Simulated assay, not measured.
Amino acid sequence: MIKQKILLLLLFIIITACGNTTYTHHFKKGRMIDFSQGKWLLNHPFTNHNPRHIDDLAAKHFERFLGDSLSRITKMENGNVIAAHLPFDPSPEQLKAARVATGHDFLINVQSHLGRNEMGSFAHAPAMGSTVKTNGASSKIRIYNLHTGEMISETSTTGVAEVLKSEGDKNWDYVNSAQTIAVKSLKRL
């Protein structure tokens, strides 16, 4: 009985591990941020899939560092009006207007983009020839100082799962979907 549970646990770990995905991280600016000061505003997510899930995920992880210092623009009374004027790459004037409207010190913008999603969870061989299939997604976080209107941090992660399958290959490869890659890349940031 114990051996069966251990085998099931190992199988689960293998299946949910990397999923043939390679992640690339890039820190453009501000690798170390001091989250101990000020009021932080999490903007609505910029995404081409499930914005509510991305908003909840980002809030959950930032709340671990910021606690009560974090506000979500999606939960504010006038949040939709403010968010409508804040693109992912806002101007210094837009940032200062957000400071006046919200009273916050910093803005967090989260972007999550699904790229290719050519495979399901298990890649299998084609009937003839060979094929390369790719699932991919990227995430980016930018943090702005609302007092100065400048970006103080930008980090990004790109995840790609690529599988080459040839005719006659009887193995099934576990592959992360683009949605899973997007969530995992955001968690890594």
Score class of each variant (00 low, 15 high):
I2L: 15
K3V: 12
Q4C: 09
K5I: 12
I6C: 09
L7W: 12
L7T: 06
L7E: 07
L8R: 06
L8H: 04
L10F: 13
L10W: 09
L11M: 05
A17Y: 02
A17Q: 11
N20V: 05
T22R: 07
T22H: 11
T24Q: 13
T24I: 04
T24E: 02
H25Q: 14
H25R: 13
H26M: 11
K28W: 04
R31L: 04
M32E: 14
M32I: 11
I33K: 03
D34K: 10
D34I: 03
S36E: 15
Q37I: 14
W40S: 03
L41W: 07
L41D: 00
L41M: 00
H44E: 15
H44N: 08
F46I: 15
T47R: 03
H49C: 13
N50H: 09
H53G: 06
D55W: 00
H61T: 11
F62G: 03
L66H: 03
D68W: 02
L70M: 02
R72V: 06
I73N: 02
T74F: 04
K75N: 10
K75T: 14
K75I: 12
G79V: 08
V81A: 13
V81N: 02
A84K: 15
P87M: 03
P90W: 02
S91L: 07
E93N: 15
K96Y: 01
A97C: 07
A98S: 10
V100K: 15
V100S: 08
T102L: 10
G103H: 05
G103Y: 01
L107Q: 04
I108S: 06
N109E: 06
N109W: 01
V110P: 15
V110L: 14
Q111V: 05
G115V: 03
R116V: 02
R116K: 08
E118S: 02
M119L: 09
G120A: 01
F122P: 06
M128K: 12
S130Q: 13
T131H: 11
T131V: 15
V132T: 14
K133C: 02
T134F: 00
T134E: 02
N135C: 06
N135M: 07
S138Q: 07
R142F: 05
I143S: 06
L146V: 00
H147M: 13
T148G: 05
G149F: 04
G149S: 07
E150L: 10
E150K: 14
M151G: 03
I152H: 03
E154T: 09
E154V: 10
E154I: 08
T155C: 03
S156H: 02
T157Q: 11
G159M: 03
G159K: 01
A161R: 08
A161F: 07
E162N: 06
V163G: 01
S166A: 10
D169C: 12
K170A: 15
K170E: 05
K170D: 12
K170R: 15
K170T: 13
W172Q: 15
D173M: 07
Y174F: 10
Y174M: 15
N176D: 04
S177N: 09
S177T: 14
A178K: 14
T180K: 14
T180P: 00
T180D: 06
S185F: 12
L186F: 10
L189K: 00
